[in-house]
Computed example of a mutant assay.
Amino acid sequence: MENKDPLPQINHRFVSRVWIAAGIISFIVVALLLSWKANQVFLYTLAGAIIAIYFHGFAGLIARKTKISPKWSLPLSIILSISFLFGTFFLIGARVTGEVVQFTKEVPSLVEDAKNFIEGNSNIKLIYEKIASSKIVEKASLLLGGFFNSTVGVFGDIYIVLFIGIFFTAAPDQYKTGIVKLLPADMRLQGNNLIEKIVKNLRSWLKGMLFSMFVVFVLTSIGLAILGIDLWLVLALIAGLLSFIPNFGPIISIIPAALVALSKSPSTALWVIVLYCFVQLVESNFITPLVQQELIKTPPALIIISQVFVGIWLGAWGVILATPILVIVMVLVQELYIKKQDQKQSLSK
């Protein structure tokens, strides 16, 4: 009986494994390069998906309350949302525009008043010099600069995001099915369930954030109006919009309000700061727990870490979208790792 040489078969297996390993490494390298160079595409896609989730969530609310079929509730949600935006702009747009123009004109004098106040107070001057020496302002300027110097500009970004959101809204199942089909056949059911879980968490997060932004706007506008602050409407809008960014947004919104109040008196500026701290206290202790009731529990420190990390990687847009990115990562870790480890542990007992 003739003995066959096993060496060619061994070499063939070895070469196959080398090619497989090389292919995997190449795929990882290409994926990392794309994620680094084309990170704007990821942000556009995520922002568009959030817009689509909002429209579908609003459509579901309309369908539940009015018994309208989903065929009509979805376009109705888009029409109502756009009508609300245009109606709001029509009612308060002229007032806000006037206040913004006035605020822009007053910024140089407000900054000068702030400098004079700092120079006249030795303790505050010492704190300011320490902050300036730590280059915090420089780093913040670079971070914000990344936002305004993005690939196609801010308005171009918004234009692209809106169109992506509209396409996602029109045919969400088509895109979800396409993603699921990329998975192996035995993993498609799990992949579909995972996407549904992510969408559910993002919907709950977005619903809570919109409610939180509205509460911050109302409380801030009432407080500023009581204090007799000029430009109270635009300042309250800024506070409401920036509350979309946890931790850093409320801090940024204090700056223009404090500058405007400082033009009246230092005590007024102090009261405005107290007001903003009170609103933030209410939001973080009462609103945020309501937001996270239906979400995977996320430690506050982890949100800050994710904002810093994603902000360094993706710029200011990354800071804005850091929380939904963290929500997605937490769902993936929970479903793909923690639950499987728990199942293995329960089976081993």
Rank of each mutant, 00 (worst) to 15 (best):
235 L>Q: 05
323 T>W: 07
215 V>D: 02
221 S>F: 14
261 A>S: 07
175 Y>M: 09
42 F>L: 15
13 R>V: 13
238 I>H: 00
303 I>M: 09
135 K>Y: 14
331 V>C: 05
210 L>G: 02
134 S>K: 06
44 Y>A: 06
48 G>D: 01
305 I>G: 03
106 E>H: 12
156 G>D: 04
233 L>G: 03
1 M>D: 10
155 F>V: 12
52 A>R: 00
77 S>I: 00
327 V>N: 08
164 I>F: 04
19 W>S: 10
16 S>V: 14
274 V>K: 03
317 W>Y: 12
263 S>A: 07
108 P>Y: 06
197 K>N: 13
120 G>L: 08
27 F>Y: 02
45 T>P: 00
257 A>S: 09
290 L>D: 03
313 W>C: 01
142 L>W: 08
80 L>S: 05
219 L>W: 11
4 K>I: 12
71 K>D: 13
8 P>F: 11
258 A>E: 12
308 V>K: 06
3 N>M: 11
29 V>P: 00
325 I>F: 10
36 W>F: 12
290 L>G: 02
341 Q>L: 15
125 K>D: 02
187 M>D: 14
166 I>N: 04
314 L>R: 05
7 L>W: 12
101 V>C: 00
219 L>V: 05
81 S>H: 02
326 L>V: 05
254 I>H: 03
208 G>P: 09
66 T>Q: 04
257 A>V: 02
196 E>N: 11
344 K>Q: 09
113 D>M: 10
250 P>H: 07
148 F>T: 05
113 D>I: 09
283 E>F: 04
339 K>V: 05
237 L>E: 02
84 F>C: 15
291 V>L: 08
120 G>Q: 06
198 I>S: 08
110 L>T: 05
312 I>Q: 12
56 H>T: 01
127 I>Y: 15
159 Y>D: 07
